[in-house]
């Protein structure tokens, strides 16, 4: 089959970008979207042009490296599928596909379809863990975890951190990502001791990074390749409000606004080191 790819080309963060159309012949329906880009890049290199930069690594839908918009939808039209596993059989001969990078203030562009998602790492660094140093763990079976809790934690923990949720959200909110980690750790008994402080820190960091607020639109869960449910955002909000109330004497919360845009001032939460 033949496909026309209309791709966002931008040399670097500060350069201006534009769409360029490329015809790709001999597309095999069993190819993945990324393999189709491989074929295009081989042609471009042969023609002495700059190949299209796109992020990819495992190509089996688990590392979270890949991702771009295909015709306006994050990861393309197939539900629960990253672009590395999106096969071309889902398109028709002669289709034009528009490929664009994730667009969000908190994901600055690096080149073509590649963006910088370190803001996600900083949200995790702010509190997305259980503080247990190596060697200090009790026996694995000393902490019984109800099967249902383990299953629900696993549902949330399946997040691959690709950023599709942010790209799909009209506010570029990271609520699904942040809520998923808070839900995973918050449901498990091991994660309970730090549940409040985790909520406060992660939400504060999310706001600091310049992600927008959540207005419950649900686009995020619609494009999520791991189908993280919207309820993780409800869980995040509940944890955050509960923590704000319990920790009201702690300066961290009460004097600091929920979102940056509600006051127009930047948050001053302890900045993560190493940035």
């Amino acid at each position: 089959m033949r496909i026309k790819l209309k791709i966002w080309r931008q040399k670097s963060r500060n350069a201006s970008g534009r769409f360029v159309s490329y015809p790709v012949e001999n597309v095999n329906p069993d190819m993945s979207m990324l393999e189709c880009l491989d074929v295009l890049n081989e042609q471009l290199i042969q023609q002495g042009e700059d190949p299209v930069a796109f992020e990819h690594d495992c190509r089996e839908g688990i590392c979270g490296s890949c991702g771009f918009m295909v015709n306006g939808v994050a990861h393309g039209p197939l539900p629960a599928t990253t672009v590395c596993q999106l096969t071309m059989r889902h398109f028709n001969d002669g289709n034009e596909l528009v490929l664009e990078p994730w667009r969000a203030r908190a994901f600055p562009l690096i080149k073509d379809l590649v963006v910088d998602r370190r803001s996600f790492d900083r949200i995790i660094a702010a509190g997305g863990y259980i503080s247990v140093s190596t060697g200090s763990a009790p026996d694995g079976n000393a902490i019984p975890v109800p099967k249902e809790a383990a299953d629900r934690a696993m549902d949330a923990a399946a997040c691959i951190g690709c950023g599709a949720c942010v790209a799909a959200c009209p506010n570029a909110s990271a609520a699904l990502f942040t809520g998923a980690k808070m839900t995973h750790l918050g449901i498990l008994p091991q994660g309970k001791p730090e549940r409040d402080v985790r909520a406060i820190r992660m939400v504060a960091q999310m706001n600091e990074e310049g992600f927008g607020g959540c207005t419950n639109i649900g686009e995020c869960t619609g494009v999520c390749p791991k189908e993280i449910p919207l309820e993780v955002i409800a869980a995040m909000n509940r944890d955050y409000f509960r923590a704000s109330w319990r920790e009201r004497d702690n300066v961290v919360t009460t004097i600091r606004p929920f979102t940056e845009w509600s006051t127009g001032s930047k948050l001053q939460v302890d900045p993560p080191s190493g940035r």
């Binding site: 009790p138 694995g140 079976n141 109800p146 383990a150 299953d151 696993m154």
Partner: peptide, 22 residues
């Protein structure tokens, strides 16, 4: 055996039996 203990404590959601054990 220590690895499993460490990972459980970190919150790795290992599969569980109905009684809550691994």
């Amino acid at each position: 055996v220590n690895i499993i203990d460490q990972c459980v404590a970190q919150g790795v959601p290992f599969a569980r039996e109905y009684g809550g054990t691994l």
